[in-house]
Amino acid sequence: MMSKNFMNLQFASRSENESFARVTVAAFVSQLDPTLDELTDIKTVVSEAVTNCIIHGYDNSPNGIVYISAEIDEDTVVISIEDRGAGIADVEQAKQPLFTSKPELERSGMGFTIMENFMDEVEITSAVGVGTKVTMKKRLESKKALMN
């Protein structure tokens, strides 16, 4: 089996970098030979978390930095996405389906719900004025294992 592998990434909190983040994390995870569904799930949760950093953490200011780290340990991937922005006053409230702190932007309020549905574990740590970190874990069923 592979030993632990990792990557770190940081970029400006600009919406055009969201697709860059998706593709970069997907490329890193691809070494585990994930199924297409697993890869789609990972790209989706990365998009949701990065978008949250940009819109909620930094209030659409391009001056913030979004931090991503990903680690592979055997068949498990752990992805952390972090901002040093506004923070979340009530994480439990923020996790509720359809809750959004920016209804004027017609956001669906489903970001954390999607993350929790697509990943095995989701941990959210946040402090107002300090920032938010979302750590997500998923065990992948590699296509090689499915064929045996």
Rank of each mutant, 00 (worst) to 15 (best):
S69A: 13
E92I: 03
C53A: 15
F28T: 00
L39K: 01
L9P: 02
V29T: 04
N148T: 10
L98R: 14
Q93P: 01
T100A: 03
A89Y: 11
L9F: 12
K138R: 09
T51K: 09
G109A: 03
K143S: 14
D37G: 03
V45F: 08
F20P: 01
N117C: 11
T125V: 14
T100Y: 08
V128L: 09
M1E: 13
I79V: 09
D75N: 14
I65T: 15
I88Q: 07
A145W: 06
T125P: 02
L39C: 06
N52C: 06
T35D: 13
D33H: 05
Q96H: 10
V29Q: 04
G85H: 11
E74W: 05
T100D: 08
D75P: 01
K137I: 14
N63W: 10
T24C: 09
D33A: 07
F99C: 06
F28G: 00
S15G: 00
I88G: 08
N60A: 06
P103F: 01
V122F: 01
D90R: 01
A26I: 08
V78L: 09
S3Y: 10
V128S: 09
N52R: 02
I81C: 10
A94M: 07
M147Q: 14
S3P: 10
E38S: 11
T132F: 06
I81H: 11
P62A: 01
G131P: 07
E92Q: 06
L98Y: 15
E104W: 03
A94G: 03
P97V: 13
V91I: 14
A26M: 09
F28P: 03
R84W: 13
M136P: 04
Y67W: 13
V29W: 05
S142W: 05
F99S: 06
G57I: 02
L105Y: 09
R22V: 00
K143P: 02
E74R: 12
A127S: 12
E74Y: 11
G131Q: 06
T125W: 00
Q93W: 08
I114Q: 06
P62T: 04
M7V: 04
E92L: 10
E18Y: 03
L105H: 12
M136T: 02
H56S: 05
A27H: 12
S30E: 13
E71L: 10
T132C: 05
P34A: 06
I42D: 04
V122T: 15
P34V: 02
E92F: 01
K95Q: 15
P103G: 01
K4M: 10
E116M: 10
E104L: 00
M119Q: 04
Q10Y: 12
Q10C: 07
V128E: 15
P97E: 15
F99E: 10
M2A: 12
T125M: 07
D90I: 02
D75V: 05
N148L: 12
R107V: 11
F20L: 14
M119H: 05
K138T: 07
E116F: 04
S3E: 15
G64P: 07
Y58V: 06
N117F: 10
N8E: 15
M136V: 05
